[in-house]
């Protein structure tokens, strides 16, 4: 009797587990559906975008339109791709570099005003960005940086959350390593690059990936700062293009959206572990 009870329990657990896999798989397909649809829409004939999921034939016409320009429409998408890459890379490099040296000073060195500075950075993390949008725009206007790369870049050169993460993580690295390096005559910069960063690979990777993603994705700021098509980043060009003369070219829109999505998706798949760890850490610190 006990045997059959155990067996029925086991069966029920088995059934529950099958159900969970089924629900998770169905949900995952549902969640990935927009990606798949976007990609398929970018390689199928226009008339099938609204009516069919699977294309009857494949075409590269939308990519050709986006990358080479049509007869009447010439938009520099390839250039926009490199604009985005350039702006986001410079910003990410600055955020990681400044974040690491600031985090090192805050986490490992003693100086006056250290606690005050750390508290100020904690406050920065919870300040709504909207408070800075208009005055920073006016500042950039006054600096004559409207419609320039510098104008886009200068808005995001540090990240308070990144500094916080570096500070917290650098605190956990054994002092002996630092002392030994100093004994060998290493300067502070050598210690940061040769010891702190390599031993904090997961935090560094997270700060870099997360910020690169956010900068790649940046829309509002780049929208208000840049007017020339040649300077626009991908999100801005795609938005202007969708709301403007390419409104009737859904295939071209999906080709551009795919170009905008793929690099980050690739980055995400390569560094998924750091990404997930980072979300959990920031979530816990909240």
């Amino acid at each position: 009797m006990i045997g059959s009870l155990v067996r029925s329990r086991k069966n029920r657990r088995h059934l529950t587990s099958v159900a969970i896999y089924a629900v998770l798989t169905a949900g995952a397909l549902f969640w990935l559906f927009p990606f798949v649809w976007m990609f398929l829409a970018s390689i199928k004939p226009t008339e099938e975008i609204y009516t069919r999921f699977w294309p009857t034939r494949l075409t590269l016409e939308h990519y050709r339109l986006v990358l080479q320009g049509g007869v009447a429409l010439q938009r520099p998408f390839l250039r926009a791709f490199f604009n985005t890459l350039f702006v986001a890379s410079v910003q990410t490099a600055a955020i990681v570099f400044i974040g690491a040296i600031t985090g090192y000073a805050l986490g490992r060195l003693e100086f006056r005003a250290r606690d005050a500075l750390f508290n100020a950075i904690l406050y920065q993390m919870i300040f709504p960005g909207i408070l800075f949008l208009i005055p920073t725009f006016l500042l950039v206007l006054r600096l004559n940086l409207i419609n320039t790369y510098a104008g886009m870049i200068v808005r995001f050169l540090t990240d308070a959350t990144g500094v916080f993460l570096f500070t917290q993580f650098f605190k956990t690295i054994p002092q002996d390593l630092i002392d030994a390096a100093r004994m060998d005559g290493a300067g502070e910069f050598t210690i940061i690059w040769r010891i702190m960063i390599p031993l904090s690979a997961s935090v560094t990777a997270f700060v870099a990936i997360f910020n690169f993603m956010a900068r790649w994705d940046e829309f509002l700021w780049n929208l208000i700062v840049v007017r020339d098509y040649d300077l626009m980043t991908l999100p801005v060009l795609l938005a202007v293009f969708t709301k403007g003369e390419y409104g009737d070219y859904p295939g071209a829109q999906m080709a551009a959206a795919t170009i905008l999505t793929l690099p980050i998706l690739l980055l995400f798949m390569l560094f998924r572990r750091y990404f997930e760890e980072g979300i959990v850490t920031t979530g816990l610190k909240g």
Partner: peptide, 28 residues
């Protein structure tokens, strides 16, 4: 985890255009 987190990595402009077309009056 990757399947459900992928949506978070998609650029705002990209998924907005995707859903605009996908959910339009005569969309799929």
């Amino acid at each position: 985890i990757a399947a459900y987190l992928a949506s978070y990595t998609m650029a705002g402009v990209a998924y907005s255009v995707v859903f605009m077309l996908l959910l339009s009056g005569n969309g799929l």
